[in-house]
Design a protein around this nucleic acid. Structure first.
Lengths: 113, 113
DNA sequence: GATTAATCTTACCTTTGGGTAAGTTAACTT
DNA sequence: AAGTTAACTTACCCAAAGGTAAGATTAATC
């Protein structure tokens, strides 16, 4: 049993899953893997996220130390989101997951449209 | 954009995450990695799951082809849950995730109790 | 005939996640 | 002065996730 931010988890995998929990976090991390991105750029890359949720998720990822943001003092504002070292290092596992899904694409009867 | 069971996903990672979404699925898969387990055995191994939720999750995992169950015609019933080939092959990515969390244990200020 | 056993179900409730739609900010453009 | 822009924020809503507690099953055992 381990604790993180006053919540308990049954093991490290449990916690790791918590950090990327939800519809969008893993996708966001994946999108950030090839360089920093601006807010709207990120939103366009992940068609379907609402601004509200994207903001929430980015804040959570930042709060957990997976990404950081740079705010440029311009108007209209320019903000860039970037992976931290820890954020970069989670990519291999996400990539393996992706490859796994690709491998079993036929068996799962995934339809590409 | 891909489709699986009439729902759409932005990419294969999105779908893979869906298959292990929720508080318990990844943990269950991990527990099953060293051999088949009975229902109550699984529940005791993952302290905290309610019977209801464990049942739901096992059904979902079965429905997605990650595990299968064998029911022995006894009373009281004996049921064993086991990883399919696809289920076994997701383990490396989960294990990598776990190692990642272990690596950043100090930085995340995880408390072991 | 009541108890125990393991698996699964049902009813009910609360929390969380994510969606839409609209508003805010502040400087630059027209 | 009104419109445009990027990045948030806020109010509101609905669906999904997960929890507790209780019940169903059914043969063997006490």
């Amino acid at each position: 049993m381990i604790y993180y931010k006053d919540k308990k988890y049954v093991c490290h995998l449990d916690l790791a899953m918590e950090l990327i929990r939800g519809k969008w976090k893993a996708i966001i991390l994946c999108r950030l893997n090839n360089g920093p991105k601006r807010f709207l750029e990120l939103q366009r890359m992940t068609c379907g996220v609402s601004q509200k949720v994207l903001n929430e998720k980015l804040k959570e990822l930042e709060g957990d130390g997976l990404i950081f943001k740079t705010t440029y003092p311009e108007v209209p504002p320019k903000v860039e989101f970037e992976l931290t070292e820890m954020g970069k290092e989670i990519f291999p596992s996400l990539n393996l997951l992706k490859k796994w899904a690709l491998k079993y694409e036929k068996q799962l009867e995934i339809q590409s449209k």
